[in-house]
Structure formats: structure tokens, C-alpha cells
């Protein structure tokens, strides 16, 4: 009897013998163990079958990695805070620059201005009002806190000049005629008394037979503009 015949005889026909039953029981145990092992290896990644020292190593690696990532996160957050701060600062600086530009523009007469103030009208029928009287009026208004002034459509700034004699007066080279209308932005309660003080602008002008009226207003618009002039020689010395 060859081995092959013995194999065939064992397989068919099935016989219930003690040997077959014992082997079947042991093979059942083997199949069970095999299936369980295959299942646990396939469904729970590599960690399930890993030994203790491997697990400890993996854990340590994960800890290291977490630490590194935590560090990275902190540095990135610091960077973000820094960037936010700097952009806030830049925004603040821009805002301040814009405000400053507006303020300086009002002083230099390059932007229009509005606000409370007074209107001073000098009606000069006899042509006796001289350029220096108008200049006196301007000085008085400035001393009383006038912030923006225009006379008959000419903006009054630091280098404004008045020339000419009674009746023919030039402001910055522009001929203006009576009546002279001053639009002044400032605190009306300060400006009007400053003109009306005894021996002041109004009295002096009335002595020259000019008619002077001062009207307070909550809304004065000074919209005459001066062109922006770039100085030829002077440069900003800051920075």
C-alpha cells in the first residue's frame, strides 16, 4: 500500500474512528487559533501583535513627536501674534498719518474745511479800507483761535499777503473788491468778542466809515483751496 493510497483511503469514504475524531478535535483547535490570529493581525493594525518593548518604543516616539509638534505650534502661534501686532501697529500708524494729513491740510489750505464759526462782512462804500486793516482783522481772528479763513474766495494761510491801497486790494496777487467777506472757522464765542473789543477791528473799520457785520453760524464752509507746493530746497529733517 503506497502513501497515496493511504491518503485516499483516509479521505474517502469517511469513517468514524477514534483516530479520525481525535485528529479532527485537534485540527479544530488549530483552525480556531489560526482564524483568531489572522483576524486579530488583520483588523487591529500592527499594534495588537506588538511586544511590550516595541510598544514602549512606539509610545516614546509618539511622545517625542507630540512634543516636537507642540513646540512647533507654540512658535507658530508666537509668530502669528507678532504678525497681528505688527499689522495692528501699521494700521494705527496709517490712521494717525491720515489724521495728521487732514490737520496739516487744513492749516496749509489744501483741503476744504467746515465747522462752526463766523462770517465777517466789511462793506466799504468809500474805498477807505486799506490792506493793513484787513491784515489786522486776520491777525485778530488768528489770535482768537481761527482755524481756517477765506476772504472772497481766497484761502488765507501762513504766507498769504495783502497788497494795494483803498479799494484796490490784492490777496496773494488776486484782486478783490468790496464788500470783503471773511468766512472763519473757529469758536464763535471767542471770535466775535475778539473783533468787537473797544478799539478793536470793528471800531477801527467803522471809524473809516465802513459797515461791518459779524454773524455767528454753526456751519461755515471754507472751500477755497491752495495748490500743494513742494518746497524747492527745504526737506524734512526727521527720519
Amino acid at each position: 500500500m503506497t502513501g497515496r493510497q493511504r491518503l485516499v483511503a483516509g479521505l474517502w469514504p469517511p469513517r468514524v474512528t477514534r483516530a479520525q475524531l481525535t485528529v479532527a478535535a485537534l485540527l479544530f483547535v488549530l483552525g480556531l487559533g489560526l482564524a483568531i490570529q489572522v483576524r486579530s493581525t488583520s483588523d487591529n493594525s500592527a499594534l495588537r501583535g506588538a511586544r511590550q518593548e516595541d510598544l514602549v518604543r512606539i509610545l516614546a516616539e509618539l511622545d517625542n513627536r507630540t512634543e516636537r509638534l507642540e513646540d512647533e505650534k507654540q512658535s507658530l502661534e508666537a509668530q502669528r501674534t507678532e504678525l497681528e501686532n505688527s499689522s495692528d501697529q501699521a494700521e494705527e500708524a496709517r490712521k494717525q498719518t491720515r489724521q495728521k494729513e487732514q490737520q496739516l491740510g487744513i492749516l496749509a489750505g489744501t483741503v476744504a474745511a467746515r465747522g462752526p464759526g463766523i462770517t465777517l462782512t466789511i462793506a466799504d462804500g468809500s474805498g477807505s479800507v486799506e490792506a493793513d486793516m484787513l491784515l489786522d482783522a486776520i491777525q485778530e481772528l488768528r489770535a482768537a483761535g481761527a482755524e481756517a479763513i477765506q476772504v472772497n474766495g481766497n484761502r488765507i494761510v501762513a504766507d498769504t499777503y495783502f497788497t494795494g491801497t483803498g479799494g484796490d486790494i490784492d490777496v496773494d496777487g488776486n484782486r478783490i473788491g468790496a464788500p470783503y467777506i471773511f468766512k472763519v472757522i473757529g469758536k464763535p464765542q471767542d471770535l466775535e468778542p475778539a473783533l468787537n473789543i473797544p478799539g478793536g477791528v470793528v471800531q477801527t473799520l467803522e471809524k473809516e466809515r465802513a459797515t461791518v457785520t459779524v454773524t455767528r453760524s454753526e456751519k461755515i464752509v471754507v472751500d477755497a483751496l491752495r495748490p500743494v507746493k513742494r518746497p524747492d530746497y527745504a526737506r524734512s529733517s526727521t527720519r
Partner: peptide
């Protein structure tokens, strides 16, 4: 034959029952 059957039944039981190994 019965031995082979035992092996097959063991594999199937292991896959289906999913016993928890201590």
C-alpha cells in the same frame, strides 16, 4: 475526511464567532 472537516469547521468558527482572546 472527518479530520479535514474538523479543520474547516475550526476556521469558520474562528472567523464567525470572533472569540475574545485573553
Amino acid at each position: 475526511m472527518i479530520a479535514v472537516l474538523g479543520l474547516v469547521i475550526g476556521v469558520v468558527a474562528g472567523l464567525l464567532v470572533r472569540p475574545e482572546v485573553p
